[in-house]
Nucleic acid binder design. Sequence first.
DNA 1: TCCTCCTACGTCAACGTTGACGTAACCGAC
DNA 2: GTCGGTTACGTCAACGTTGACGTAGGAGGA
Lengths: 331, 331
Amino acid sequence: MRDVAALAKVSTKTVSRVINDLPGAGPEVVERVRAAARTLGYRPNLAASGLRRSDRRTATIGVLFEDLSNPFDSALLRAVEDRARHNGVLVLAGSSEDDRTLQGELLISLSARRVDGVVVMAAGGHQDALQQERERGTPMVLVDRPPTFDGTDCVTTTNRDSSREAVTQLASLGHRDIAFLGDRRTLWTSQERYTGYLEGLAQAGLTLREELVRTDLHGADLADAAATDLLDLDRPPTALFTAQNLVTVGAMRVLRARGLHHRVALIGFDDFPLADMLEPGITVVRQDVPGIGRKAAELILARIDGDTSPPVHAVVPASLVRRGSGEISPH
Amino acid sequence: MRDVAALAKVSTKTVSRVINDLPGAGPEVVERVRAAARTLGYRPNLAASGLRRSDRRTATIGVLFEDLSNPFDSALLRAVEDRARHNGVLVLAGSSEDDRTLQGELLISLSARRVDGVVVMAAGGHQDALQQERERGTPMVLVDRPPTFDGTDCVTTTNRDSSREAVTQLASLGHRDIAFLGDRRTLWTSQERYTGYLEGLAQAGLTLREELVRTDLHGADLADAAATDLLDLDRPPTALFTAQNLVTVGAMRVLRARGLHHRVALIGFDDFPLADMLEPGITVVRQDVPGIGRKAAELILARIDGDTSPPVHAVVPASLVRRGSGEISPH
DNA sequence: TCCTCCTACGTCAACGTTGACGTAACCGAC
DNA sequence: GTCGGTTACGTCAACGTTGACGTAGGAGGA
């Protein structure tokens, strides 16, 4: 900046005025400064600027999801990024692996970089680190899972209602033995979807068969094993409700391996690419991922802009997409 | 920091020493400072620190890919992120939409935030903005596509050789009418894969039928239309080589719609989730995405650490994954 | 003519932190 | 007892930028 000022024969303050489009600089001075900045390849230092400015903004938000290579997470990131860029805000992204310790460390890293706010997919278990960061004043929006503490915005989907709808649909086709395959029980979404499953059973007048419920299926291998085990039961399920996308894929794989993919019904929570191209197409509960991301971004940007209205829990509706696998009757 | 110093009854310099684990602070002073920092919830300001430190690092790198919601890009991001985190480095991520203007703007945003280096998937066309940023001294690694200027590291895959291998495989089954469906011709990868296609034809003694070559298929809709058009030819292709993952999906969709998915052979460039679960399984050229990401991250971290060895063009081998669709004979 | 107001600049200090350097106290050696 | 060296601190300025404030010169009105 000093070099630019020297080349344009003005003070650094005037350079500051020019690059920030502030009044108080004559037309030919503006042109001189612009030219000098161009020839020197000058780029303002946003960190130094933020240090001095009164609002102390970095125009950067943090995004802490579970796994950025998961299609759900990356679609969400993209939606947040698009909305943020609209405001000139960039995104510092990290994967927490659903590990509280790692999430806490990443949160500290983001905090040290003075992000203006964070959008977090909370890791399972207690949320002490999140709550602490929130109480330090960091604007925060949780996505996918709600906070266990007060005063924080959050955006989720209709986990329970949509799960109930899926199970009701299966029951209406005559299924009486509907299995539940879920992700880790520590996750709120898993619990909600399980509750929806129970509600669906109850609504259809079906009794719960405990042995048809498998949870903590973290990863495709565990899902494979659980599905295999279920199909080996004396009275195997005629329909599966898989409550997470990787679990759905694992179950599908097992059904195909056994040639049962046209005989056992399957509804999965979360859509995934190519679900429509399989034989049969996979019926899923589709979340409105761009909608969730956009909403989360709008909330965090509003909070950063000083919105102090009461915390919001936005629920973005999911919808059942019928493609065939969920429309298979029991025999 | 001043508050911590006051509470611990030391100078800010001593606080600095303690939080940076520098010598020159007695054991009980260290403890007092740590306690004070804890009770006040103090977080060092990395921006201010970087401003003053001699190396001027922000421990942040920029990642500029085409579309973070594309599985290829997000897997790459994740690989870079993992390797970077290992060094305490965080990732500022952005999607360029393959738009040079947008990419340039994002590059300026990253530069203003003083990222230590950038990993870029160059947008098609000229790379003036990239070159300019590079010449300003920003460490840079290109992925997926090489630079059109000198002095910059890059990591790509075996586009040409693997494409040739795919076409050779189809020809060896007796296919003589092999179509090429490619992404935008401005992309280096498209050109390389097309060259590989030509080499494969030549190697098999086949002559090129120009009408079987369709390029600039940006997006699934264009791929659909091109595939439809090809299959409507008087002498339609008996095999398709699709040179990008979205194009592959579009072609698959058309083949299925026409009931030709068991009759027309298909090999795609880039693997995608569930390619193995389709009927038939889709034969693809699989890139080693984690390998590419790791290599790119290692290169940029090394450059940031002052590695001045000559620029590297790392080529990470891809491999042909046979799943069925590429093993269909012509009648 | 003189005063006021505005415009177009410049000067200075401060944002939070650390490098360079200073200093007081203590240690061991001669 | 003095001296050189080490340890454990503190002081000061500077990183790149901007808010607060100052000032010179010109325009406009009474």
